[in-house]
Amino acid sequence: MRLRMDREDLSGGISTVTRALATRTTLPILEGILLETTPAGLRLVCNDTVLSIEDTVPVEVMEEGSVVVPGRMFSEIVRRLPEGKVELELDGDRVIVRSKGSKITVVALDAAEYPRLPAVEDASPIKIPQKLLKEKINQVIFATADDETRPILTGVLMEMGRDMTLVALDGYRLAMNHLPLSMDGNRRSVVPGKSLSEMARTLSDGDELVEISFQGNHIRLDMGPIQMISRLLEGEFIQYRQILPTDFSTLVKLSREAFFDAIQRASLVVREGRNNLIRLHFEGEELAITANSEMGDALEKVAIECEGKPLDIAFNAKYLSDVLKSLDDEFIQLNFSTSVSPLVVTPVEGEEYLYLVLPVRLHG
């Protein structure tokens, strides 16, 4: 194998695929990057057994071939090379990297030993603008669970039918978002949160389409030169619709930005506390937010439109902030039943999203 390419192209491809570079694996070869010449260019692949990412970069091929190079070392070498052309040459079990006055040799592994990626073929892939999918993922991903004792909750449920619904919940909050979609049949799949997070990082901010395919226990995202394949989580996701409140006694419309900013300021005095507790009092045309700790006290007031009963309720400030910063609506609606029932956040109009946040019980 002998190749020549721009350092910038190679570095960009490495940066993309190494998001799936394995660490602490029982298969040491997965700590490497597969390099393989193809008619489309140089194919780079990383695979951590759950998520695999491949990218194809432009290259001038003098001699075809394939090899696995040590991932972290090779990535750092390429990152530190001078700008301009880079030449790679396979010499026995070593890869020689040349760039201007630089020549570095690294021990490589046989590409034939690299595990084959699963074939994920779908006759009718779902096509969605990349920017839209990225936005929707980011609006729910924060609500996945970190606790591996319930593995299914570390993923995001993707329900597909007349639309696509993304759902994440961790026992304290639930995030749900809808994308317009039309497909034959219905499907429920749970994608690992870490995989979906890396997918969101890789999706562009443009209107180019991403193709989503499912086959067996895998999902594939096709973004042209970039392909991402993830295993799906096994198990039954919580029947979340059964826990969504439907009757409310207090409805509040307010500025999302004003509410978020007030929470951020009030939480400064309780940030070091065990539960980051803030208290909310809704009545008439005003919301009063209070926070108290050994470090200080805070009072914030926000203008609101309130229908129904006055209400006192408390929350972990972070859980509220995570919801508010994921949205960009100017105004939102807060829906309450009682001071010990979940808060439901919805748009003022429509059903594009829904967030549920459990309150903190107040004693005395």
Rank of each mutant, 00 (worst) to 15 (best):
R4S: 15
R7T: 03
S11Q: 15
S15M: 10
T18I: 15
R19W: 07
R24L: 03
E36P: 03
L44T: 08
L44G: 02
V45D: 09
I53L: 08
E54V: 07
V57S: 01
V59T: 13
E60C: 09
E60I: 11
E64N: 14
F74S: 09
E76P: 00
V78P: 01
E87R: 15
E87G: 14
L88G: 03
E89S: 12
G92D: 03
I96W: 08
I104E: 00
V106S: 02
V107A: 10
A111I: 11
Y114R: 09
I126E: 02
P129E: 13
P129R: 13
N138E: 14
T154G: 02
T154W: 01
T154D: 02
T154I: 07
G155R: 01
L157P: 02
G161M: 06
R162G: 15
D163W: 10
T165G: 00
M176V: 04
M176D: 03
N177R: 15
L179R: 01
L181P: 04
S189R: 15
S197D: 09
A200E: 03
R201H: 06
L203S: 11
E208T: 13
E208Q: 14
L209T: 10
I212T: 11
Q215R: 15
L221Q: 06
M223K: 11
I229H: 12
S230G: 04
R231Y: 03
R231L: 07
L232F: 06
F248Y: 11
S255V: 01
A262R: 01
S267Q: 14
S267A: 13
N276D: 05
R279C: 01
F282D: 06
E283A: 02
E286F: 05
L287D: 02
A291M: 00
S293I: 02
A298M: 08
C306M: 15
P310F: 01
N316I: 00
S321M: 15
V323Y: 04
L324C: 05
Q333T: 13
N335P: 08
S341V: 06
L358M: 15
G364F: 06
G364V: 05
